[in-house]
Design a binder for these strands. Structure first.
Lengths: 235, 235
DNA sequence: TGAAATAACTTGTAAATACAAGTTTAAATT
DNA sequence: AATTTAAACTTGTATTTACAAGTTATTTCA
């Protein structure tokens, strides 16, 4: 009946409290039984929420002791699905649209194999520069198969998470994905955007992102300048 | 009573079957209820095993349909805990010990903050080169705090997973961790080992690895040549 | 025959319960 | 007082039950 499941609500709540500093590093979260009482739910449900927090790297659990809040990462977390991207430095992380959103047709080879439906549909192209403290940190190039995305190209993307828009307007939620990482030399174009010399080492991520819409994936190619801040991930 | 929990057994079994090709990409695993019947366990237990497979990127689940086997990754999976390292290409992945194992004392700054106990204990140092198809793929430098690791320096590490040794002889299992990624220029030393020119882009991972032993972490600094095969990860 | 309704599957969420195992605190014993 | 023991916590594993929700195959009806 509930649109969002209970464990999700508890997860979001605890996550927010950790990010906001209600619980600090090393603190113990309320025990599972206490969370049960407070929110009037059962332990399996609480544990489902806590598992998600562990998976996101927000807490560690220790048998007999409790759920210990982890330190918030120093770098930028884009390795896990909702792990830390939305958690850290989102305040001073600005977004600049370089190209799009505009509809294009697939041409040439692509970083991931595409289905027939995807090929026929074309894609929405968005190229963005993400800026942290006035310094360009990463350039992300996004490919969203143009399947059931009405009025997408006319939406505003400035300083807004792509994920948020997909969730809010199209009820598309990211459920996971796969990625490849490489260290490459920046070419002329990437170098200009990231303000590094041509040939400078840059981290390249190629991602295929799965959603709650069955068989709907979208794709991102991300170039990171890791000189200032590293990419962070929990596992 | 059971030394290893049931869900772990089922997880290992299914994982092996996927890796061995019993279930191929796109195949459906037996349904949860079927796995219950076959292994004489209950659905929450089965689901715990399947969750672990999802987390490792081996399957995707679709409500109403089933558990769909994912494609085995092309690259080398060292991003997740037991995700794909041990799954892919372990046959032709050779290991060459460059230094150690030998006990050393901490000196100077370290990539992660250390506890007092860790500082006082020193660490076991191991430097290894991992070779895939006669080509050096990555160089890993490991720091294991020298706490309760009897006879560690005298063990043989050739062509053997560090994780395996820790599990087998010391009952230490990797439960998770955190990592930072950077694209850097190879220096003289790294360039020589990885057979790339000095200044060539190399992927650098700094990892703090958590274990089932409370407060026991170990650390790895990994340098990857991603020219031939990328680093792969599911999330 | 073709479309719609139904049944029989699948996974997702959730409750209530039980005991095992690790940690901490308090009490009892020496 | 110091040590040991026990109790009261904590999380880990597991069962049983129930219904919701999505998918597929079958049946029914027009």
């Amino acid at each position: 009946m509930a649109q969002t499941p209970q464990y999700r609500r508890i997860y979001e709540l605890l996550r927010k409290h950790i990010v906001d500093g209600v619980y600090k590093e090393g603190d113990l979260l309320p025990s599972e039984n206490e969370l049960c009482r407070v929110h009037n739910i059962t332990r399996p449900t609480v544990r489902q929420a806590l598992d998600a927090l562990v998976h996101g790297g927000f807490i560690k659990k220790q048998q007999g002791k409790g759920s210990i809040v982890s330190s918030l990462p120093q770098g930028i977390g884009i390795l896990s699905v909702s792990g830390t991207t939305s958690a850290v430095g989102i305040n001073n992380l600005k977004t600049k649209i370089l190209t799009g959103p505009e509809v294009r047709a697939w041409a040439g080879a692509f970083m991931f194999p595409l289905s027939q439906v995807e090929k026929e549909s074309g894609y929405v192209y968005i190229e963005r520069l993400r800026i942290l403290d006035e310094k360009p940190i990463f350039l992300d190039v996004n490919f969203l198969p143009n399947i059931n995305l009405p009025r997408f190209t006319s939406r505003s993307f400035e300083n807004r998470s792509l994920f948020d828009i997909l969730r809010k307007f199209y009820n598309i939620q990211v459920t996971g994905g796969e990625q490849r990482l490489r260290a490459i030399k920046a070419d002329e174009n990437i170098g200009n955007h990231l303000q590094v010399k041509k040939g400078h080492p840059v981290l390249h991520l190629e991602r295929k992102i799965a959603t709650n819409r069955v068989d709907y994936y979208f794709y991102s190619s991300i170039y990171c300048n890791t000189d200032i801040s590293a990419i962070y991930g929990a596992f």
